[in-house]
Amino acid sequence: MRHSEFWDLMDRHLGRGYARVWADSHVMSVLGGRTAVEALDAGEDPKVVWRAVHATQGLPASER
């Protein structure tokens, strides 16, 4: 998954404005106590970060 695909999914599920705010402020233990933005900036695979967001938000399995 590319970073652009990750952000497209985030925008689709959380809304364009809120997705960035959420990704920059919501700390997830599955990402080592980092936010999505911190994990991506540290080089984490966007697919891994999306799976963490997906689980945290309780999105349908079809959206994984």
Rank of each mutant, 00 (worst) to 15 (best):
V21I: 15
K47V: 07
S29C: 03
Y18S: 06
S29H: 04
W22Q: 04
Q57V: 07
Y18A: 08
R2A: 13
R51N: 06
A23N: 06
S25P: 03
A61S: 15
L14K: 06
M10L: 08
R2H: 13
E44P: 09
E5V: 12
S62N: 09
W7R: 01
K47D: 10
M28F: 01
A61C: 14
V48L: 13
A23D: 01
G33P: 01
A52V: 03
K47E: 11
R16M: 09
G15M: 01
T56S: 10
D11L: 09
A19I: 05
V37T: 15
E63W: 06
D8I: 05
M10K: 00
F6M: 03
G43V: 00
H54S: 03
L40S: 02
L40Q: 02
R64S: 08
A36Y: 04
Y18T: 05
A42Y: 10
V21Q: 14
L9N: 09
E63M: 06
H26C: 13
E44Q: 12
E44C: 12
S25V: 11
D11Q: 13
H54Q: 09
V27W: 07
D24G: 14
G32I: 03
G33Q: 06
L9V: 00
P60R: 14
V27M: 09
L14D: 04
H26A: 15
Y18E: 11
A23S: 11
D8L: 11
G58P: 01
L14S: 02
V21C: 12
W7G: 04
E38N: 13
S25D: 14
L40P: 02
